[in-house]
Every structure is written in structure tokens, then in C-alpha cells.
Computed example of a mutant assay.
Amino acid sequence: MAKDILKVSLLTLGTIEILDLRENLSQRPFASRDLAKFICKMNHLEKLKLYGQYHDDFYSTASSMASTTKQIDTLDLYADPSERPSALRHLAQSLCTCCKMNQHHDDFYSSSSSMASTAKDKCNTSSTVTNLTVTDRTLKEWQDCGSMFDNVKRITIQIQDTIRCDVIQKIHLPAVTELTIQPEQYAMQPAFLHDDPTAFHKLSSQLVKVTFTDLTIGNDQTEHTIQAFRSTHDLKHLRILGFIRCGTDESLDPSNDEHRIQVEIVHGEPEW
């Protein structure tokens, strides 16, 4: 696949908007270097998915060309160089230089504390990221990232099985107004709520909307969750509480009469 990508004509190079890479180039420095150059010259690239493994030369080349690279909108990053300090440093530098990303989905800050601290050291100012998607595994290893995510307005947390309060309390994004909780993209089992869901105020006291999507909750727990949110004094700005395909049915009909927090429900079984 790597050879095929590098043989793409210059005409095609200028028109690609989405690039999905899953190659193992960890032992191929020249191919890794050429691939990085290829990516950095793509003037119309909007979404980049890096699922493969790459040689250190990939990251150093990307870092050296970052200042002249078009800023992409969305990065899905699953490649993990956390055990390779130089690659990690170059990755942090390149992402911070071209970090227009509206959605940084990932294990950039999750795989190890060294990854998070490196990013903090190299990116000590706020990025322009406004939409952030992370997994609960990311949050379990979350470290202080300085002011990098101070501009994030919307966050989606993808969970593998349950979301716990002690995990939520590890992240604080002061400007977040919208939170969505949903299963991981390739979940193999149902996802559930756990503990007190109103602990989300630890994430941001500015939350206006909280949405649960495709979780196994059911009528009883949904009703309890609604009551908990409507009773808490920690989320003073919350106005909308949503449940989308969370195992509820028509027998659940929460009243919205003159209540500050309005409930929006799409009944049905979770899709995962």
C-alpha cells in the first residue's frame, strides 16, 4: 500500500481530502520519510487517519515540514511512539504547529504520562481545537496538558464498558459546554453508566448540554439519572439532557413542564 500511495500522480495529490493509513513502516526509514513528505504536500487534505506503525524518520520529517503543511481539520491518531522519546518529541512539535484539528481523537495524550508531559512542554499555549474526542482509556492515563485544551467547547467520551467518576475527575476543560458519552467506535459489548453521572461538573461547570448515546441504561436508570441532574446544584448552566437509543421505551415520559433542564429522548435499543 505504501508504494501505491507514493506513486499517486501530482494531480491526485492535490485533490485528496481523506487519507486512511494502516501500514507497518516501523522498519522502513526511507518509506516512512517519503510518506511524511507526501502527506505534508497534500494541499486539500482535511482528514488524516494514522493507524499504522512508522519509523522515527516519519515523525522527524513531519516535524521539519509542519510549518509549511496545510492545517488539517480532523486527525485520528492510533500510532503510538510513546516508548521512543525522539519520535514522541517530533510528534508533539508537528501536531502543535499544524493543530487546527477540530477533533483530535486519540491516544496522543493517553498511552503514557510521558506522551502527555511532552505535549505540555512543547505546546504551552492554547490550541485552536474546539471539538475533542477521547476514549475512557485515554482519561485513565490523563495528565496535566497545561492550557492546550482551554478552547475546547465540545467533548465526546467513548467508553469501552462503563464510565466511572474517578476517571471523569481526571480531566478539566474549563470552556466545555457540550458533553456526549457513547460507546467506542468498534465496541464488542454494551456500554453502561456507573456511579453518579452528575460528577460531570468536575469536567466543566459550564456544561449546557449532556447527551448519552447508545448506552444500555433502560427506563429506571434513565429516570434516576434525570432526577439526579435536576437535583444537583453543581451544573447551574445545564439546560438540555439527552438520551439517544439508551434502551428506553414510550412508557418513560419525563415531564419538561417549566423545568430548567429539558429532557430530549430518542427511544430504542443501543446501536453498537
Rank of each mutant, 00 (worst) to 15 (best):
S86Y: 04
D161M: 05
Q143G: 08
H237L: 10
H259L: 07
R22C: 09
A191K: 01
D20Y: 11
R137D: 07
R245Y: 05
I157E: 00
D73P: 00
H90S: 11
H105K: 09
M42L: 08
V176Q: 06
D4L: 14
Q27C: 11
A36R: 11
N124G: 09
M42R: 12
Q221T: 04
T12C: 11
T133M: 06
L11F: 15
A62M: 14
R230W: 00
T118V: 12
L207Y: 04
E269P: 08
S231L: 07
G14P: 05
Q189K: 13
T12W: 10
D257C: 07
W272M: 09
S63H: 08
S63P: 06
Y51G: 15
V266K: 15
K7S: 11
K153M: 14
I155M: 09
D107P: 01
A119H: 14
M188I: 05
K153H: 15
S113P: 02
R84Q: 12
D57S: 09
T74L: 10
T222A: 13
L235V: 02
I240C: 03
D234P: 01
F38M: 14
P254A: 08
G242Y: 03
Q182T: 15
N24W: 06
I168N: 02
E258G: 09
F149P: 02
N151M: 00
W142M: 05
A87H: 05
Q160S: 08
H172V: 01
K3V: 00
I163C: 09
K70S: 09
A191C: 15
N219A: 08
L91C: 10
E23F: 09
L50T: 09
N24R: 11
Q221F: 00
E17K: 15
V266R: 11
P81K: 08
D195A: 04
T12G: 04
R89N: 06
N151L: 03
D121K: 14
T74W: 14
I157R: 00
G268M: 09
S32G: 04
H267L: 10
N102L: 09
Y78L: 11
T232G: 02
V167I: 12
H237I: 00
T138I: 04
E269G: 00
L173N: 10
D144V: 02
L207F: 03
C96V: 08
T68K: 14
T118G: 14
G14F: 06
K170V: 03
R89K: 12
I171H: 07
S114M: 07
D257Y: 12
I18D: 11
S32F: 00
S94C: 13
K140A: 02
I72K: 13
I159L: 04
D249M: 13
Q189I: 01
M188T: 13
T74I: 10
L19M: 13
Y54K: 12
P29Q: 02
L19R: 12
Q206T: 08
E250N: 15
R28N: 10
G14Q: 15
Q160A: 03
E184A: 03
L19G: 08
D80C: 10
